[in-house]
């Protein structure tokens, strides 16, 4: 039987979790703000925009294993949010800002597929190709933000995420099952 974690352990785990959540939020904000500034979508120093992007990429690269672990859940919830916006026809909690239902449903489909594909990164030792693909996926999302071709970038990003899976299928190497089949 596993030992019951002490109160100190629980507090430490809680603080660690809160720090991770804040880190994800800060990294996401740096990515989006940096990309918008660099592409002159919003006012600001281009140099600071590049700096924000660089810092965000360094944080991403240093925490790529954790990023791979949280990606399926984030994408699944993102797909759910996209479906909600497609159904309501407007941005979350802002009925005055309308969204294209086609783009929202398309994004939901691409994100749901990406969530399914990215589940294979969960609990797996990431290869160099996996790491490149995960960073490229973030790059595609940012490209979609600044180019306004969001649906295309979500779709291309999903295809890029599928590259390691396609490669493993072509090479015929299947991942080891986590449990016995029971037969």
């Amino acid at each position: 039987m596993a030992n019951k974690p002490s109160v100190a352990d629980q507090v430490f785990n809680g603080l660690r979790l809160a720090t991770l959540v804040v880190l994800v939020c800060v990294t996401g904000t740096l990515f989006v703000w940096g990309a918008l500034v660099v592409s002159h979508e919003v006012a600001g120093s281009v140099m600071i925009g590049w700096l924000a992007l660089a810092v965000a990429f360094v944080i991403l690269l240093l925490n790529l294993d954790g990023w791979a672990k949280i990606l399926p859940g984030l994408l699944a919830l993102a797909a759910f949010n996209a479906v909600l916006m497609a159904v309501s026809g407007h941005i979350f909690n802002k009925p005055s800002v309308l969204v294209s239902r086609g783009v929202a449903f398309g994004s939901a489909a691409a994100l749901a597929l990406a969530a399914l594909i990215s589940a294979r990164f969960h609990g797996k030792r990431l290869s160099i190709l996996d790491r490149i693909v995960l960073v490229a996926y973030v790059g595609f999302i940012l490209l979609g933000l600044v180019s306004q071709w969001l649906l295309l970038s979500f779709t291309l990003g999903t295809l890029v995420l599928a590259v390691p899976w396609i490669k493993s299928q072509l090479h015929g190497s299947r991942p080891k099952p986590h449990h016995e089949s029971g037969y």
């Binding site: 939020c25 996401g28 989006v32 918008l36 979508e41 984030l74 919830l77 993102a78 759910f80 949010n81 996209a82 909600l84 916006m85 941005i91 979350f92 909690n93 800002v97 969204v99 783009v103 929202a104 994004s107 994100l111 999302i141 979609g144 933000l145 306004q148 969001l150």
Partner: peptide
């Protein structure tokens, strides 16, 4: 609008939304 949509997809409040 594009950024707003994408940002709400990834970081919108799903509960109130």
């Amino acid at each position: 609008s594009t950024v707003n949509f994408a940002a709400n997809v990834f970081g919108g409040n799903s509960l109130t939304g």
